[in-house]
Design a protein around this nucleic acid. Sequence first.
DNA 1: AATGAATGAGTTTTCATTCAT
DNA 2: CATGAATGAAAACTCATTCAT
Lengths: 226, 226, 226, 226
Amino acid sequence: MKKREVHASVKDERLIQKRRDQMINGAVKLFIEKGFHRTTTREIARSAGFSIGTLYEYIRTKEDVLYLVCDRIYDQVRERLQKILDTKQQTTLDDLRQAIANYFRVVDGMQDEVLVMYQEVKSLPKDALPYVLRKELEMVDIFKQMLERCVENGEISLSENQIKMHSHNIYVQGQMWAFRRWELRKLFTLDEYIELQMEFLVEGAKGVKENTKECIYCETRNVPAN
Amino acid sequence: MKKREVHASVKDERLIQKRRDQMINGAVKLFIEKGFHRTTTREIARSAGFSIGTLYEYIRTKEDVLYLVCDRIYDQVRERLQKILDTKQQTTLDDLRQAIANYFRVVDGMQDEVLVMYQEVKSLPKDALPYVLRKELEMVDIFKQMLERCVENGEISLSENQIKMHSHNIYVQGQMWAFRRWELRKLFTLDEYIELQMEFLVEGAKGVKENTKECIYCETRNVPAN
Amino acid sequence: MKKREVHASVKDERLIQKRRDQMINGAVKLFIEKGFHRTTTREIARSAGFSIGTLYEYIRTKEDVLYLVCDRIYDQVRERLQKILDTKQQTTLDDLRQAIANYFRVVDGMQDEVLVMYQEVKSLPKDALPYVLRKELEMVDIFKQMLERCVENGEISLSENQIKMHSHNIYVQGQMWAFRRWELRKLFTLDEYIELQMEFLVEGAKGVKENTKECIYCETRNVPAN
Amino acid sequence: MKKREVHASVKDERLIQKRRDQMINGAVKLFIEKGFHRTTTREIARSAGFSIGTLYEYIRTKEDVLYLVCDRIYDQVRERLQKILDTKQQTTLDDLRQAIANYFRVVDGMQDEVLVMYQEVKSLPKDALPYVLRKELEMVDIFKQMLERCVENGEISLSENQIKMHSHNIYVQGQMWAFRRWELRKLFTLDEYIELQMEFLVEGAKGVKENTKECIYCETRNVPAN
DNA sequence: AATGAATGAGTTTTCATTCAT
DNA sequence: CATGAATGAAAACTCATTCAT
């Protein structure tokens, strides 16, 4: 749960927070525009409003900036999501619908940021990855919990595994609106997209059988190994 | 349909083919391992088995290598997919199931490559992007056509838009096995994954209502604009 | 009249001046020795007394160095010339003689630099050429003005065109001492050269007829076109 | 008098001649267009109509091509000049006028080539320079001889040194039409240029005093050493 | 003799990082 | 704390030259 520490030479915690905010805001814009590798530290510093020397008072390496940025993006997505969920104590299928719709809208509002993360996570410092992936899972977990409650209150019937699977599906189909926007935008408006996916994600899920004992495809090996 | 041309100084077409094969094979490994930006042209040359000078006899810029690699990956995924589909003349829901299962297995066999593409497309030379995205759509289209035939033969009932949407879902849920493997692998085996998603993608789709006239979520704007 | 700007990353104008001085001094020596193309940027940096990284803080491209060098050389030649001329208010033929002699001595003192310019102007960045050529003309103009005044005060009689022509001749015959030194040095000392050319340039000019109405050579076309 | 040898792997002298002709013709065009250093050997080969391998059958280094080109240009200028002069047995001032006019026209017809030589001689292989400079002097010598004969037949009166000096002046003022064409072209047509320079070179020379015993400028040292 | 694929040393340029002021 | 000049390792790319066919 603890955050990964990023070393700063400066002591004043309040100042650290302020400078990092500037830095992250500047960097996000640049990463969206040209990606992490094509963005220089000088550009980040300038866009943050201070000098390159100052930048390095608050981070140790360029990768630290990326970590800070990713961290921030997750926090924002999550925060917005949470804001909605917190009001609800228990969950009905309709609450899930609301949550999904809201989540999709959040993704729409942070398309660029979501995209950055999809493309740059691999450049994170090795030790930062777990922290970021954990946040990812926490968000999936939100949907998982909602699904569980819907199963509990009998509105829908899904196995343990199906719940896990489906929470990932909900999460990914939200992200999808961002990372496949080059095509989806041509086909649907956001409202249409929400409506269509809602059908598949909620109504469709009702039609799923809980226990498929025999899966005939598991034996299927008619694809050459490579 | 025409391929984007990559300039080569060498004339002999057969040689170009051979050298580019070497180059692509070497590069994929490196891109998987460290990403496009962290891979140097010298490494690519060495890993391909020839000198840096020779590398540049067959391409003009480093980005050309990336294009060649992406192009190749798509071709391979597609080729494997096609091999299966070509045998079938018409499509039943069961054929669709077969196709999905096979597709998921192909993705599993090319996880690394699929991942590379998700992360590096943005680094493609600007004029190469359309070529690559077209290939992507061609693959989505395979599923779209299968869905259409299933609708035609009455096994399932989906609107035009739902078909479009769902073909993307099928495609993305296959890719998902690659780009979220860090988590999915912990939860499911490939077989389990196939089985679970099949439920949602096929059985679930049966439960979808064709015409949702009124979508109550479309008006929902309870998410702050930013 | 404005100088062509050469971009520097460094802000401190005083420092820019200082570093560029070092750079130019180092570069001139190298250009004289081996020409622009055979001189590497690393050599320029080293010879200037700083690192390659620092060099590029003060210029954008290697060609910028050449422009800076050419610009400097002209400024120096001109400055020295001006210093002499400024003392004189009106011009007699004798002042012209003084000016020519002085100019020839300046060229002698900057032989290498003059040579560099003759050989490397063509390598200047395209947009820099006009600036350099303008400076060249300004120097020719100095002699033109002196000639005009000598004509005005009746010491010599030349047409408008003859003045233009002759100012170029004076200028070029000065440069000639630099760019044909490989031979002229064998034949004459600088003093002899000055004395001899003075005869042709000043006494000779007296014997020129102002209006040659008919030029019999203009019709002469006994040289095959190619 | 012997030419500098350029090594060829090929034996057949007739073939060597042919191939080198092709090579020189191709190279001149390229050197005029982009200079020696910016022209690649591959370009030379292509423009000559054969392969890079073949090029190196007839030369040893790129610099050899430059030597060959310079050599050829001098030969051509000279040849054209000679063609005219050979017809005359003795020389009158009028013959000199004819020769000068013709020479200027030759230069005009070979402007580009003359320019190339001015800019690229310094890149010649060290041991080739003497050969090229000798040719240069031979051409100056033509005018020297003509001047001498004019002095002999009493039409003009010049000292030994003045003759030497003036032959260089004639030669350089011809070249000047090429290397200062960027400005001279704006001022004069070729015919005007010839007419004007003729005045200075021939009529002017008549006004020159043969023996200036005392040169007051020789002592003049009012230019700071540097 | 002719070809052109292969080579790799050498070139320009960039940029993360440091450190003296 | 803030600055920004200095650094140099490392990167992409070029091109004269060789040599097997």
